[in-house]
């Protein structure tokens, strides 16, 4: 069993513990659930601001990744998969980014999550940055897709913390729609 992460002496605790994950699609293969789970690797878990920086400072910036890759930041105990109990009734806000914006947007997004800027109780599950050929995609996942007050608040906070142009298109998708 994995040891639980705890803040060290003098460190600033986070409201929740989180894990970073990394996944990379093997070119040409269909993404079945099994291969998705096999392709996703947990990088590490952290409980404090300082522990977060120790991981993050050594990670490649999303804008420097090549190929079909994703970084995931999820609360400890939640797998970055639709099938996880915390996610199965949930959904995600999706923002498509032109190339060159992913690194800055991803950093602003995860700092807002870790700092509890969304003010939606326990609703946030995690976030993903997906590096693709022509554009990059960031998404933030929450527990209850049917809770419109929560999803609206997440959308408004996203606009503020990402400092997005007013015409940026944001799309909400429930995970059950994504499975279909």
């Amino acid at each position: 069993r994995r040891k639980m992460a705890v803040p060290g002496a003098g460190e600033h605790p986070l409201q929740f513990n989180y894990s970073f994950w990394y996944s990379r699609r093997t070119p040409g293969r269909p993404a079945s659930t099994q291969s998705y789970e096999q392709n996703i690797k947990q990088i590490g878990t952290f409980a404090s601001v300082e522990q977060f920086w120790r991981f993050y400072s050594h990670m490649i910036r999303p804008g420097d990744l090549t190929g079909h890759s994703d970084f995931h930041l999820f609360k400890d105990g939640i797998k970055p998969m639709w099938e996880d109990d915390a996610n199965k009734m949930g959904g995600k806000w999706i923002i498509r980014l032109r190339k060159g914006l992913a690194s800055r947007c991803w950093e602003n997004l995860i700092l807002a999550i870790l700092g509890e800027q969304f003010m939606v109780g326990e609703e946030i599950c995690g976030a993903v940055v997906s590096v693709r050929f022509q554009e990059d995609i960031i998404s933030i996942w929450n527990k209850t897709a049917s809770d419109q007050a929560t999803t609206a608040r997440i959308r408004d906070t996203l606009r503020r913390v990402l400092n997005l142009p007013p015409n940026t298109i944001m799309e909400y998708k429930t995970h059950t729609d994504s499975i279909k």
């Binding site: 460190e11 601001v49 300082e50």
Partner: peptide
């Protein structure tokens, strides 16, 4: 209970702490 809230600037400042290395 209380929530532990940090703004972006505070989190970025923590990056320079020796504990963050």
């Amino acid at each position: 209970g209380t929530r532990i809230i940090y703004d972006r600037k505070f989190l970025l400042d923590c990056r320079n702490s020796p504990l963050a290395r």
